[in-house]
């Protein structure tokens, strides 16, 4: 039975390294995604949004030419 014990366990270190590596990659991606998501949206509310329609001289001139 003692002969069945594995003598060299070093090769299993690959599994450990792969696990640690993939966890690190996930953490890196997650941190970047988090930064993007944390960016404030540039949208403004309807109350804050100014500059609505007003009949400027430019627009009056357009109406005048359309009446021709």
């Amino acid at each position: 039975m003692q002969d069945q014990q594995p003598k060299n366990l070093k090769r299993r270190g690959f599994l450990l390294a792969a696990g640690v590596g993939s966890a690190g990659a996930v953490a890196l991606v997650a941190s970047r995604v988090g930064k993007d998501a944390a960016k404030p949206l540039t949208t403004v509310s309807a109350e804050e949004k100014t500059g609505s329609y007003a009949e400027t001289p430019h627009i009056s001139n357009y109406y005048r030419t359309a009446r021709v």
């Binding site: 609505s52 329609y53 400027t56 430019h58």
Partner: peptide, 12 residues
């Protein structure tokens, strides 16, 4: 945003 510039749509 032409409306905020005091203009109408470019197409018209």
């Amino acid at each position: 945003n032409r409306i905020s510039e005091g203009k109408l749509p470019a197409c018209a």
